[in-house]
Amino acid sequence: MDLRIFTEPQQGADYDTLLAVAKATEALGFDAFFRSDHYLRMGSADGLPGPTDAWITLAGLARETSRIRLGTLMTAGTFRLPGVLAIQVAQVDQMSGGRIELGLGAGWFEDEHKAYGIPFPKEKSARLEEQLAIVTGLWATETGKTFNHDGTYYQLTDSPALPKPAQAKVPVLIGGHGAVRTPRLAARYADEFNIPFASLADSERQFGRVRAAAQTAGRSPDDLVYSNALVVCVGKNDAEVARRAAAIGREVEELKANGLAGSPAEVVEKIGAYEAIGSSRIYLQVLDLDDLDHLELISSQVQSQLNGA
Protein backbone atom coordinates (compact mmCIF):
# COMPACT_ATOMS: atom_id res chain seq x y z
CA MET A 1 0.00 0.00 0.00
CA ASP A 2 1.43 3.35 -1.08
CA LEU A 3 0.80 6.25 1.30
CA ARG A 4 0.87 9.75 -0.18
CA ILE A 5 0.54 13.10 1.57
CA PHE A 6 -2.28 15.28 0.22
CA THR A 7 -2.56 18.95 1.22
CA GLU A 8 -5.25 21.63 0.92
CA PRO A 9 -3.24 24.89 0.86
CA GLN A 10 -6.25 27.10 0.11
CA GLN A 11 -7.23 26.58 3.75
CA GLY A 12 -4.15 28.57 4.78
CA ALA A 13 -0.52 27.82 3.83
CA ASP A 14 2.28 29.71 2.14
CA TYR A 15 5.02 28.17 0.02
CA ASP A 16 7.45 27.80 2.93
CA THR A 17 4.88 25.76 4.86
CA LEU A 18 4.28 23.52 1.85
CA LEU A 19 8.02 23.12 1.37
CA ALA A 20 8.41 21.99 4.98
CA VAL A 21 5.63 19.42 4.52
CA ALA A 22 7.11 18.20 1.23
CA LYS A 23 10.58 17.81 2.76
CA ALA A 24 9.07 15.89 5.70
CA THR A 25 7.15 13.74 3.21
CA GLU A 26 10.41 12.85 1.52
CA ALA A 27 12.45 12.35 4.69
CA LEU A 28 9.80 10.14 6.31
CA GLY A 29 9.56 7.73 3.40
CA PHE A 30 6.15 8.59 1.98
CA ASP A 31 5.62 7.97 -1.71
CA ALA A 32 4.46 11.40 -2.87
CA PHE A 33 3.34 14.95 -2.08
CA PHE A 34 0.13 16.12 -3.73
CA ARG A 35 -1.87 19.29 -3.38
CA SER A 36 -5.29 20.58 -4.33
CA ASP A 37 -5.84 23.23 -7.00
CA HIS A 38 -8.07 25.89 -5.42
CA TYR A 39 -7.96 29.65 -5.07
CA LEU A 40 -10.50 30.13 -2.28
CA ARG A 41 -10.82 28.72 1.22
CA MET A 42 -13.73 26.49 2.17
CA GLY A 43 -15.56 26.31 5.48
CA SER A 44 -14.43 28.19 8.57
CA ALA A 45 -10.70 28.47 7.77
CA ASP A 46 -9.41 32.02 7.36
CA GLY A 47 -7.34 31.08 4.31
CA LEU A 48 -4.49 33.38 5.33
CA PRO A 49 -2.07 34.34 3.88
CA GLY A 50 -4.05 33.58 0.71
CA PRO A 51 -3.97 31.05 -2.13
CA THR A 52 -0.92 29.58 -3.80
CA ASP A 53 -0.93 28.33 -7.37
CA ALA A 54 -0.64 24.56 -7.70
CA TRP A 55 1.77 24.40 -10.61
CA ILE A 56 3.98 27.24 -9.40
CA THR A 57 4.21 25.41 -6.06
CA LEU A 58 5.08 22.11 -7.74
CA ALA A 59 7.72 23.79 -9.90
CA GLY A 60 9.43 25.04 -6.76
CA LEU A 61 9.16 21.69 -5.01
CA ALA A 62 10.51 19.96 -8.11
CA ARG A 63 13.83 21.71 -7.51
CA GLU A 64 13.83 21.30 -3.73
CA THR A 65 13.05 17.58 -3.48
CA SER A 66 14.75 14.62 -5.10
CA ARG A 67 12.72 11.41 -4.62
CA ILE A 68 9.02 11.88 -4.00
CA ARG A 69 6.41 12.02 -6.73
CA LEU A 70 4.60 15.36 -7.07
CA GLY A 71 1.14 16.08 -8.39
CA THR A 72 -2.37 17.47 -8.13
CA LEU A 73 -5.68 16.17 -6.86
CA MET A 74 -7.09 17.60 -9.06
CA THR A 75 -5.99 20.37 -11.41
CA ALA A 76 -9.16 22.30 -12.28
CA GLY A 77 -9.80 22.18 -16.01
CA THR A 78 -11.51 25.57 -15.79
CA PHE A 79 -8.28 27.28 -14.66
CA ARG A 80 -6.03 26.58 -17.65
CA LEU A 81 -6.23 26.14 -21.39
CA PRO A 82 -5.25 22.55 -22.22
CA GLY A 83 -2.37 23.48 -24.51
CA VAL A 84 -0.89 25.76 -21.85
CA LEU A 85 -1.40 23.09 -19.18
CA ALA A 86 0.46 20.53 -21.31
CA ILE A 87 3.42 22.93 -21.53
CA GLN A 88 3.36 23.68 -17.79
CA VAL A 89 3.23 20.05 -16.71
CA ALA A 90 5.90 18.98 -19.19
CA GLN A 91 8.23 21.73 -17.98
CA VAL A 92 7.71 20.90 -14.30
CA ASP A 93 8.26 17.23 -15.10
CA GLN A 94 11.59 18.15 -16.66
CA MET A 95 12.44 20.29 -13.62
CA SER A 96 11.73 17.33 -11.33
CA GLY A 97 13.67 14.78 -13.32
CA GLY A 98 10.49 12.91 -14.23
CA ARG A 99 8.50 12.78 -10.97
CA ILE A 100 5.26 14.54 -11.93
CA GLU A 101 1.72 13.15 -12.07
CA LEU A 102 -1.30 15.05 -13.39
CA GLY A 103 -4.67 14.74 -11.75
CA LEU A 104 -7.16 16.55 -13.99
CA GLY A 105 -10.79 17.30 -13.16
CA ALA A 106 -13.57 19.45 -14.55
CA GLY A 107 -13.53 22.11 -11.80
CA TRP A 108 -16.53 22.61 -9.55
CA PHE A 109 -16.17 25.45 -7.00
CA GLU A 110 -18.03 28.35 -8.59
CA ASP A 111 -17.29 30.88 -5.84
CA GLU A 112 -13.53 30.81 -6.49
CA HIS A 113 -14.16 31.51 -10.15
CA LYS A 114 -16.28 34.53 -9.24
CA ALA A 115 -13.67 35.71 -6.74
CA TYR A 116 -10.85 35.77 -9.29
CA GLY A 117 -12.67 36.46 -12.55
CA ILE A 118 -12.28 32.95 -13.98
CA PRO A 119 -14.99 31.85 -16.44
CA PHE A 120 -17.17 29.02 -15.10
CA PRO A 121 -18.71 27.29 -18.12
CA LYS A 122 -21.80 25.12 -17.85
CA GLU A 123 -20.42 22.33 -20.04
CA LYS A 124 -17.43 21.51 -17.81
CA SER A 125 -17.52 17.73 -18.24
CA ALA A 126 -17.59 17.88 -22.02
CA ARG A 127 -14.69 20.34 -21.94
CA LEU A 128 -12.76 17.98 -19.66
CA GLU A 129 -12.98 15.21 -22.24
CA GLU A 130 -11.44 17.47 -24.89
CA GLN A 131 -8.80 18.70 -22.44
CA LEU A 132 -7.72 15.13 -21.72
CA ALA A 133 -7.53 14.37 -25.43
CA ILE A 134 -5.43 17.48 -26.08
CA VAL A 135 -3.00 17.17 -23.17
CA THR A 136 -2.30 13.48 -23.74
CA GLY A 137 -2.28 13.96 -27.52
CA LEU A 138 0.31 16.73 -27.37
CA TRP A 139 2.61 14.64 -25.20
CA ALA A 140 2.20 11.56 -27.41
CA THR A 141 2.94 13.38 -30.67
CA GLU A 142 6.27 12.32 -32.12
CA THR A 143 8.95 15.02 -32.03
CA GLY A 144 9.14 16.67 -35.43
CA LYS A 145 5.47 16.10 -36.17
CA THR A 146 2.51 18.35 -35.40
CA PHE A 147 -0.71 17.94 -33.44
CA ASN A 148 -4.15 19.14 -34.55
CA HIS A 149 -7.45 19.16 -32.74
CA ASP A 150 -10.74 20.46 -34.10
CA GLY A 151 -13.17 20.16 -31.23
CA THR A 152 -16.29 21.81 -29.95
CA TYR A 153 -14.44 23.91 -27.39
CA TYR A 154 -10.79 23.93 -28.47
CA GLN A 155 -9.00 24.10 -31.81
CA LEU A 156 -5.24 23.51 -32.19
CA THR A 157 -3.61 23.89 -35.59
CA ASP A 158 -0.14 22.60 -36.47
CA SER A 159 1.06 22.59 -32.88
CA PRO A 160 4.70 21.50 -32.56
CA ALA A 161 3.54 19.67 -29.41
CA LEU A 162 6.53 20.85 -27.39
CA PRO A 163 8.04 20.62 -24.85
CA LYS A 164 7.99 16.94 -24.01
CA PRO A 165 7.92 15.69 -20.40
CA ALA A 166 10.98 13.93 -19.00
CA GLN A 167 8.90 10.79 -18.52
CA ALA A 168 7.88 8.75 -21.52
CA LYS A 169 4.38 8.81 -20.01
CA VAL A 170 3.24 11.26 -17.34
CA PRO A 171 0.74 9.37 -15.19
CA VAL A 172 -2.77 10.83 -15.53
CA LEU A 173 -5.24 10.60 -12.65
CA ILE A 174 -8.99 10.89 -13.09
CA GLY A 175 -11.36 10.70 -10.17
CA GLY A 176 -14.83 11.26 -8.85
CA HIS A 177 -18.17 9.71 -8.01
CA GLY A 178 -19.93 9.95 -11.38
CA ALA A 179 -21.52 6.69 -12.44
CA VAL A 180 -21.15 6.87 -16.23
CA ARG A 181 -18.95 9.60 -17.73
CA THR A 182 -16.23 9.40 -15.06
CA PRO A 183 -15.58 5.65 -15.45
CA ARG A 184 -15.62 6.03 -19.24
CA LEU A 185 -13.04 8.84 -19.17
CA ALA A 186 -10.90 6.90 -16.71
CA ALA A 187 -10.99 3.82 -18.93
CA ARG A 188 -9.85 5.87 -21.92
CA TYR A 189 -7.29 8.26 -20.44
CA ALA A 190 -6.29 7.40 -16.87
CA ASP A 191 -3.35 5.56 -15.43
CA GLU A 192 -4.96 5.86 -12.01
CA PHE A 193 -8.53 6.20 -10.80
CA ASN A 194 -9.04 8.03 -7.51
CA ILE A 195 -12.20 8.31 -5.47
CA PRO A 196 -12.17 11.07 -2.83
CA PHE A 197 -13.73 10.83 0.61
CA ALA A 198 -15.78 7.72 -0.07
CA SER A 199 -16.91 4.85 2.12
CA LEU A 200 -15.77 1.29 1.56
CA ALA A 201 -19.07 0.42 -0.08
CA ASP A 202 -19.06 3.44 -2.39
CA SER A 203 -15.40 2.90 -3.28
CA GLU A 204 -15.96 -0.74 -4.14
CA ARG A 205 -18.97 0.16 -6.28
CA GLN A 206 -17.09 2.87 -8.17
CA PHE A 207 -13.98 0.73 -8.67
CA GLY A 208 -16.29 -1.88 -10.18
CA ARG A 209 -17.74 0.65 -12.60
CA VAL A 210 -14.27 1.73 -13.72
CA ARG A 211 -13.12 -1.85 -14.15
CA ALA A 212 -16.22 -2.61 -16.23
CA ALA A 213 -15.68 0.52 -18.35
CA ALA A 214 -12.05 -0.48 -18.96
CA GLN A 215 -13.14 -3.91 -20.11
CA THR A 216 -15.75 -2.40 -22.43
CA ALA A 217 -13.04 -0.14 -23.87
CA GLY A 218 -10.85 -3.17 -24.60
CA ARG A 219 -8.41 -2.42 -21.82
CA SER A 220 -7.38 -4.66 -18.95
CA PRO A 221 -8.93 -3.33 -15.72
CA ASP A 222 -5.66 -4.18 -13.98
CA ASP A 223 -3.85 -1.59 -16.11
CA LEU A 224 -5.16 1.09 -13.75
CA VAL A 225 -4.15 1.92 -10.19
CA TYR A 226 -7.17 2.31 -7.89
CA SER A 227 -6.81 4.76 -5.03
CA ASN A 228 -8.63 6.65 -2.28
CA ALA A 229 -8.24 10.10 -0.75
CA LEU A 230 -9.19 10.22 2.93
CA VAL A 231 -8.72 12.70 5.75
CA VAL A 232 -6.23 11.46 8.36
CA CYS A 233 -6.11 12.08 12.11
CA VAL A 234 -3.86 9.73 14.09
CA GLY A 235 -2.82 9.89 17.71
CA LYS A 236 -0.84 7.75 20.14
CA ASN A 237 -3.79 7.93 22.55
CA ASP A 238 -7.37 9.22 22.69
CA ALA A 239 -6.31 12.63 23.96
CA GLU A 240 -3.92 13.15 21.07
CA VAL A 241 -6.54 12.09 18.54
CA ALA A 242 -9.01 14.51 20.12
CA ARG A 243 -6.47 17.34 20.07
CA ARG A 244 -5.69 16.80 16.40
CA ALA A 245 -9.39 16.58 15.51
CA ALA A 246 -10.10 19.84 17.35
CA ALA A 247 -7.22 21.54 15.54
CA ILE A 248 -8.93 20.92 12.20
CA GLY A 249 -12.45 21.65 13.48
CA ARG A 250 -13.73 18.09 13.26
CA GLU A 251 -15.26 15.55 15.66
CA VAL A 252 -13.41 12.32 16.40
CA GLU A 253 -16.35 10.00 15.75
CA GLU A 254 -17.14 11.73 12.47
CA LEU A 255 -13.51 11.37 11.39
CA LYS A 256 -13.52 7.70 12.33
CA ALA A 257 -16.66 7.16 10.28
CA ASN A 258 -15.57 9.11 7.21
CA GLY A 259 -11.79 9.00 7.23
CA LEU A 260 -8.72 7.42 8.79
CA ALA A 261 -8.76 8.37 12.45
CA GLY A 262 -7.81 6.90 15.79
CA SER A 263 -4.82 4.97 17.02
CA PRO A 264 -2.19 3.67 14.58
CA ALA A 265 -3.67 0.19 14.95
CA GLU A 266 -7.17 1.44 14.10
CA VAL A 267 -5.92 3.28 11.04
CA VAL A 268 -3.87 0.31 9.83
CA GLU A 269 -6.96 -1.89 10.15
CA LYS A 270 -9.12 0.51 8.15
CA ILE A 271 -6.49 0.91 5.44
CA GLY A 272 -6.47 -2.89 5.22
CA ALA A 273 -10.20 -2.82 4.59
CA TYR A 274 -9.71 -0.43 1.66
CA GLU A 275 -6.93 -2.61 0.32
CA ALA A 276 -9.29 -5.59 0.43
CA ILE A 277 -11.71 -3.89 -1.98
CA GLY A 278 -8.99 -3.05 -4.50
CA SER A 279 -7.32 0.16 -3.36
CA SER A 280 -3.53 0.09 -3.58
CA ARG A 281 -2.80 3.75 -2.79
CA ILE A 282 -4.12 6.14 -0.16
CA TYR A 283 -3.82 9.92 -0.31
CA LEU A 284 -3.75 11.07 3.30
CA GLN A 285 -5.49 14.45 3.48
CA VAL A 286 -3.45 16.35 6.06
CA LEU A 287 -5.28 19.49 7.15
CA ASP A 288 -2.99 20.84 9.88
CA LEU A 289 0.16 21.56 7.89
CA ASP A 290 2.07 22.88 10.89
CA ASP A 291 1.84 19.54 12.74
CA LEU A 292 4.84 17.71 11.32
CA ASP A 293 4.84 15.39 14.35
CA HIS A 294 1.63 13.96 12.90
CA LEU A 295 3.50 12.91 9.75
CA GLU A 296 6.28 11.37 11.83
CA LEU A 297 3.75 9.32 13.81
CA ILE A 298 2.04 8.10 10.64
CA SER A 299 5.40 7.16 9.16
CA SER A 300 6.74 5.34 12.21
CA GLN A 301 3.57 3.60 13.40
CA VAL A 302 1.22 3.29 10.41
CA GLN A 303 3.40 3.14 7.31
CA SER A 304 5.92 0.89 9.05
CA GLN A 305 3.19 -1.63 9.90
CA LEU A 306 1.89 -1.62 6.34
CA ASN A 307 5.37 -2.11 4.93
CA GLY A 308 6.03 -4.91 7.36
CA ALA A 309 2.79 -6.70 6.61
Rank of each mutant, 00 (worst) to 15 (best):
G77R: 08
E269C: 04
R67T: 07
V84R: 13
T143N: 06
V21D: 01
E8D: 05
D290A: 14
Q10R: 04
A229P: 01
G137M: 13
D93F: 05
D31C: 04
I248F: 00
A24T: 03
F6Y: 12
R69L: 11
A140E: 10
P82T: 10
F147M: 05
R184S: 13
F120A: 15
S279F: 02
Q215L: 10
D293T: 15
I5E: 11
P119S: 11
T7E: 05
P119H: 06
E204V: 00
R244V: 03
S263H: 03
T157L: 08
S227K: 03
V225W: 00
A257T: 12
G71M: 12
S227A: 04
S44R: 09
G43K: 03
Y226C: 00
L156S: 10
D37L: 11
G249I: 05
E123G: 11
F34W: 14
S300Y: 02
M42W: 02
S299H: 08
A45W: 03
N258P: 01
T65Q: 04
Q155L: 06
Y15G: 01
K169A: 14
E8A: 13
K256D: 02
F207C: 12
A32C: 03
P82V: 12
V84D: 08
A242N: 08
A62E: 09
L85P: 04
P165G: 11
A190C: 11
A166M: 13
G175V: 04
A198M: 02
A265V: 07
S279N: 06
E130G: 04
P49N: 02
E123P: 06
E110C: 00
A214T: 05
E110D: 14
A214M: 07
L58S: 04
A187N: 08
R244P: 10
W108A: 11
C233G: 00
V172C: 06
E253K: 15
L128N: 14
E8R: 05
N194A: 00
L73H: 04
S125F: 14
S300G: 04
P163D: 15
A257M: 08
D37P: 08
I5H: 06
L61M: 06
P171E: 12
Q131T: 11
I134G: 01
S300P: 02
K122F: 13
A214P: 07
V267D: 02
